[in-house]
Nucleic acid binder design. Structure first.
Lengths: 118, 118
DNA sequence: TCCATAATTCAATAATCCTTGAATTATCGA
DNA sequence: TCGATAATTCAAGGATTATTGAATTATGGA
C-alpha cells in the first residue's frame, strides 16, 4: 500500500459510522452484507449509508457486487492487512523499537498529562 | 487503545501534512524535534505547523515538552503500536484470515475494476 | 528592564465533509 | 409492461476542518 492509498484509508476509518461499518463487514466475512441490511443493522438512512459505503469503496476498504436486486458489500481483507503493513513498515521504518518496546518503557508525557487533568 | 482514541488517531493521520510530520518524528526518535525545525523541514508556516501538532497531540500521537525557548515534539511509539494493535485485534476480531491470507487468495474486485478503468 | 527568538492563539476566510430528502436507476415477479 | 423493491444520485444546507496573517505569551541574554 502506498501513501496516497493509506491516506484514503485513514480518512475512511476516521468516523464512527464508517468504522462501525468496517467492523460489521469484517464479522460478516467474505459473503458480505446487502447495503440495506447494513443500514437497517445500524439505523442509518439508506442514502446516507450509500454515501459512506461509496467512501469506503473509494478508499479500497470494501468491495461491492450486485446480487439480484441487492448490492452486497464485503470488507477487503487485503486492504486491512495493507494498512497494518503500512503502519509497521512505511511509517515506523528504521525504528524497530516502535514495534518492539524496550523493557521498562515509561508512560508517555501525554498520558501523564491526562492523568493530571483528571 | 479504545475506539474513541482510534478514531482520533485515524483522523490525525488522514492528511498529508500530518502523516509526514509523524513519519519525520518517528525518524527523529525519542529526542524529538523543535516545532520550528519541523516547520522549516517541510516548508509549512509556524502557525499552521502549530495547528497540526496540536491536532496530533490531541490524538495522542505525539508528545511535547519545553526545552528552553523551543518546544520539542516526539512521536509517541506506544500510540502507534496501539493503533496497529487496534486494527489487528479490535477491528479484525474473530477473523484471523484477515491477518493470515489463505494461499492463492485472488485479487479484490476493487483492484480488478481499477485495472479495467486504466 | 529591554530586545530578540520560539511558539502559540485568535479571528476570518476557504475548503471539505456530512446529512437529509426527493428524484432516479436497476431488477424482479405478476 | 406495470408495480414493487433495492439502492444510488443529486442538490441544498449544516457542520467540521484547514489556512492565513496579525497579535500574544514565554524564555533567555545583554
Amino acid at each position: 500500500m502506498d501513501e496516497s492509498q493509506a491516506l484514503l484509508a485513514f480518512g475512511a476509518l476516521a468516523g464512527e459510522p464508517r468504522l462501525r461499518i468496517v467492523r460489521r463487514l469484517v464479522r460478516a466475512g467474505p459473503k458480505g452484507m446487502a447495503a440495506g441490511d447494513i443500514a437497517a443493522a445500524m439505523s442509518v438512512s439508506p442514502s446516507n449509508m450509500s454515501f459512506h459505503l461509496k467512501e469506503l469503496e473509494r478508499a479500497g476498504m470494501v468491495a461491492s457486487r450486485r446480487e439480484a436486486r441487492s448490492i452486497i458489500y464485503a470488507a477487503d481483507y487485503r486492504a486491512l492487512r495493507g494498512l497494518i503493513e503500512f503502519l509497521m513498515k512505511d511509517c515506523c521504518a528504521g525504528r524497530l523499537e516502535v514495534l518492539q518496546p524496550a523493557a521498562g518503557e515509561r508512560p508517555s508525557p501525554a498520558a501523564s498529562r491526562k492523568r493530571a487533568e483528571a
